[in-house]
Amino acid sequence: MDEDAIFNLEEPDENEKDYDELCRCWINEKMAPEILPFATDVVGRVMERIRAQLESLEEILETENTTDYRSVLIQNELERVKFVVRVYLRCRIAKIDKFAQYIQSHPHVLALLSSSERQYLLRHQQIVHRFYVNSFLRDLPPKMTKLDDTVGNISMVVEPDVDRTVFCLVNSTVEESVRVAEDEYVNLDKGSILLLRYSAIAPFVQQGIVSLI
């Protein structure tokens, strides 16, 4: 065997890229304080492949045992991919619940949700509102029944704390240094790992230049 004969998957194919991207979306979503754009395309393609794989698994199982090792490998991978889709979607639902009113009242944020997430949010808000009204709001003086007023400097509408501290990994060098405090700047060099406030690097996360880790 010579070295050249090593069979290497040098160039990741589209499917591999999609899966890696899905994992990145999950971790970014998990770590970012704000809700990120729904990964419509990647999720759509991965779901399509899950469906196709389930179908071919059924075919395989007609002739083979469920514990046959090739079908076990296929089932194992299916569970892995399903897991990532599941935790990605659930992580978003947790944020949607937490920031429901904020998202609802900011069209540009609402637009980051998938259509089923939007539907979920709006219907949930109705249920929540009804709950508060029936629990105690209807017994309060009418002027106190709003769910979006501000007490002192604290609003009832919970917004994401975009200044929260996050760990990030720089995927590709950013030429200009980034402002992290009044007069403090940092360089984002490829491979560096930093602990800083999310708002300083938020645009780079969406461009894939920086990953949350």
């Binding site: 499917n15 890696d20 899950i50």
Partner: peptide
């Protein structure tokens, strides 16, 4: 082995 995230040759 065709998987979802890659195809094993």
């Amino acid at each position: 082995l065709p998987l979802i995230s890659c195809t094993i040759p």
